[in-house]
């Protein structure tokens, strides 16, 4: 295993009385697909949003390429080369596909004017290369897209930026059979291109198809990390539902609960 490109050490996050994450370690290496699994409310999305800079972790640190980084906003994450496709997709319904794909990073010609033609060309290229879309027009507003189409746009947005790490939070949850197939193929292709890919999913079948390693969260703690070829679905399911917790919620005398 190569040195991980992205590594979280002992990160915690609480929302009021809810300890969503407790001293979690997590890592992903370039060229690898790391699956992140766990029951509803296990803390998967919380971990991702912390990495994304949506909110800060309470404690712990993030290392990127071996050195400690501070992430204060989504902009910092993007600058590092980390792209995230959120479970709640975070597209602006009133904007068209191109505008959404370039949101926050619009191209301008001569310093001020939006370069619509060049953005539209790039967006089309990316969407074509992914071949996961049945869009009528890239100038259609996102409000008019189906769940699968929105997902495609969100994935395309993430891969368009030559990123080093792509994180997908339940990318296939809303998709039909064919589109799921295409997204999984895409995930594999991204890793083969040398990107680090993190994929969150409740579908173990999908995960066993694409993942190299599997991290299991339970009640905000990491309970196991498996290599795909050394484990079985039963073992993973067991970890998800009954993995050994380091700290039993409500029992520890940690300052986090003071």
């Amino acid at each position: 295993m190569t040195e991980p490109i992205l590594r979280c050490e002992g990160v915690s996050k609480h929302f009021g009385a809810v300890q969503a994450l407790y001293k979690v370690d997590f890592e992903v290496a370039s060229g690898e697909v790391m699956a992140l699994v766990g029951d509803n409310g296990a803390g998967k999305s919380t971990l991702i949003k912390g990495i994304a800079g949506i909110y800060p972790f309470d404690e712990g640190q993030i290392l990127f390429d071996g050195s400690r980084v501070r992430i204060h906003s989504p902009r910092d994450t993007a600058a590092l080369g980390i792209e995230i496709v959120y479970q709640d997709l975070a597209l602006a319904d009133n904007l068209d596909v191109v505008a959404n794909m370039f949101l926050g990073r619009e191209r301008v010609a001569n310093g001020v004017v939006l370069d619509e033609a060049s953005m539209e060309s790039s967006a089309r290229e990316t969407l074509d290369s992914l071949a996961v879309t049945t869009l009528r027009s890239v100038r259609q507003t996102v409000a008019g897209l189906s769940g699968g189409q929105r997902q495609s746009v969100a994935v395309a947005k993430a891969v368009m930026w030559n990123s080093k790490v792509v994180i997908l939070d339940e990318p296939t949850a809303a998709l039909g059979v064919a589109q799921t197939r295409q997204v999984l193929d895409l995930v594999r292709r991204l890793a083969d291109r040398g990107l680090a890919v993190v994929i969150i999913s409740h579908n173990l079948h999908d995960i066993f198809e694409v993942a190299d390693r599997i991290t299991v969260l339970r009640l905000g703690q990491r309970v196991a990390v498996f290599r795909r070829e050394e484990t079985t679905q039963q073992e993973v399911v067991h970890a998800i539902t009954a993995g050994t917790l380091n700290v039993v919620p409500g029992m520890q005398k940690d300052e986090g609960y003071a």
Partner: peptide
């Protein structure tokens, strides 16, 4: 209609959370 600022105005009106996550 032609500047990044304008685009961001529409994005904030359409979905402030999406705008925030896009680094705006």
């Amino acid at each position: 209609t032609k500047t990044r600022f304008g685009r961001h105005v529409y994005a904030v009106g359409g979905n402030p959370e999406a705008a925030r996550r896009a680094g705006i």
